[in-house]
Nucleic acid binder design. Sequence first.
DNA 1: ATAAGGTCTGTAGTTACTACGGGGTCAAGG
DNA 2: CCTTGACCCCGTAGTAACTACAGACCTTAT
Lengths: 134, 134
Amino acid sequence: MRPLTIGTLAKASGVHLETVRYYERIGLMPKPSRTASNYRSFGPEHVERLSFIRRAREIGFSIGEIKELLALSEPGRASCAEVQTLTAVHLGEVRAKIADLRKLEAILTGALERCFAGTPDCPVLDMLASRRPS
Amino acid sequence: MRPLTIGTLAKASGVHLETVRYYERIGLMPKPSRTASNYRSFGPEHVERLSFIRRAREIGFSIGEIKELLALSEPGRASCAEVQTLTAVHLGEVRAKIADLRKLEAILTGALERCFAGTPDCPVLDMLASRRPS
DNA sequence: ATAAGGTCTGTAGTTACTACGGGGTCAAGG
DNA sequence: CCTTGACCCCGTAGTAACTACAGACCTTAT
């Protein structure tokens, strides 16, 4: 497997090309070597790291959290416990967000149901105008 | 009730002071009249509008959507149907987000459970390294 | 009179990208 | 050999929705 250009790496990892450069700028990806004509030159380890990052982002980890995960995943750091903690914190955030959204769902559903009941004024606007959540 | 300063308005409506100025800049709040010394001067109608905006934001409407809601709520526009549509669209988005987050919750929970089972390698990092969602 | 606290403007920082503009480079076809 | 199209370079600016200054001015109370 010979060196990949940034475009090939982007396709291989499923990350937008400009995002790869962005990750390099913020230090999430290492600065790669360059060809004679100053093109970035990547290897399979970059595909792996970038794919890791993409999956972690999809699961909702922040860039900061991913930096920690990557640091913890370096060989020699028997850090499962710390990864666990980080994941548990993130899981808590996800659950909190779900709870919030369910409340919103109930509010919106309630307002819409009153709409279909054919009330004179608009129940959605009423709700927004005067915090009557029920 | 005499005119309110921006700080009083902010407290009365529950919106951060700098956010009030921001809303004015982007045209979400009207430009208020000014005192002789150039202080903004607000009335109760501003408290109402700003509270409406805050509640709509809490329910997750975007600034753009709130602009529409405010336009639709002006007297003379019997627009309950349009408000309904907007709300239904938003409700759809909320439900989609809940569905996404529940998937994430399952993934994270699964990874953590395998952790507690005391496997040799870190299941969370394994999952991120090699898309094995099960 | 002075000190504390409120307000003014404009600008920059936040998160995680995405898009542009103006230029250099590479590979294939004619 | 030259051109055309696709790729790459860098730096900057834009996105959403704020939040946080800095430095100046004003008001209120002691």
